[in-house]
């Protein structure tokens, strides 16, 4: 390795103390089929990490490993180690339910519960017993909706069904619902793929604001979105991590041909 390259590597690596989550040799199998191959990827605290790559390359699979949502799929098996603040989340001692409260998730398709807007947001705090009184709950609901930039639109109709909102509003409601349990990390799987450009812009703006309090990992198919909202980017291909690094550098000066082709739209 040349001196310049070493310097670059030091420059782009995350400082040990800034690592929020770390995946070491993560492999995932769906039955016989292997979907991820020895992925080593760190997630930096209070920043946005974007996962990109062509369809079927394992982005969602990796994301779902981070809060063990893969446990709900019978045939799915995970090997390797993933830590949250240095603690292995696949350790049998870990309480999955508690883990998911610390690492929340927003899905590709908005999936509000068939309940009122208020109840949707109050759901998490209720089941985790985060509040002692109705007033406190009201406060959490309001602040979550505010943080998700949807409060102004729904404050007069809190008791109407959440399913009655538009797609973009529903997605922000789902983000509010995830924020309400005060997670440390929020995982987002293509959160804007069902939204129009205006709603997308709102959600992106929101992600940027949320970075102050949360660590965010986002899967996206839009290169512009990855460039706009993320600080670090990881590129997957056929179940392998191809390249990982600071977003600005990756988009201007990628190390591999594969990444360059993908980013410039020549394949994928």
């Amino acid at each position: 390795m040349t001196e310049a390259a070493t310097e670059m590597a030091v420059d782009t690596a995350i400082k040990e103390s800034a690592i929020k989550m770390r995946g070491t040799d993560v492999s995932v199998f769906y039955g016989e089929k292997q979907a991820l191959f020895d992925v080593n990827l760190d997630v930096a605290r209070n920043s946005v990490t974007a996962l990109i790559g062509p369809s079927g390359c394992g982005k969602s699979t990796f994301l779902r490993c981070l809060n063990r949502m893969n446990d709900t799929i019978d045939i799915c098996r995970v090997t390797g180690e993933i830590t949250l603040e240095g603690e292995n989340i696949y350790d049998p001692k870990i309480d999955v339910v508690e883990l998911r409260a610390r690492v929340g998730m927003v899905f590709q398709k908005p999936n509000p519960f068939p309940k009122s807007i208020y109840e949707n947001v109050a759901y998490g705090p209720r089941i985790h017993g985060l509040t002692n009184s109705r007033a406190e709950l009201d406060e959490i609901v309001e602040s979550s909706l505010r943080k998700a930039a949807i409060w102004e639109e729904v404050k007069d109709r809190l008791h109407e069904p959440g399913t009655g909102l538009s797609g973009g509003q529903q997605q922000r409601l789902c983000i509010a619902r995830a924020i309400a349990v005060s997670p440390e990390v929020i995982l987002m799987d293509e959160p804007c793929s069902a939204l129009d450009p205006i709603a997308t812009a709102k959600v992106e703006e929101l992600i940027d604001e949320l970075r102050g309090n949360f660590t965010i990992v986002i899967v996206t198919h839009s290169m512009q979105q990855a460039a706009r909202v993320s600080q670090r980017t990881a590129m997957f291909h056929l179940g392998k991590l191809v390249e990982e690094g600071v977003t600005d550098k990756m988009f201007t000066n990628p190390e591999t041909k594969l990444t360059q082709d993908y980013i410039t739209g020549r394949f994928g």
Partner: peptide, 27 residues
Amino acid sequence: VPQAMRDGSYGLGATKSETIKQVILPA
């Protein structure tokens, strides 16, 4: 009942019986 409802609930850290009681049965 769509899997997305269950995922939403599990993703918030609900247990199975909480999910059934509060999300699946009402739906």
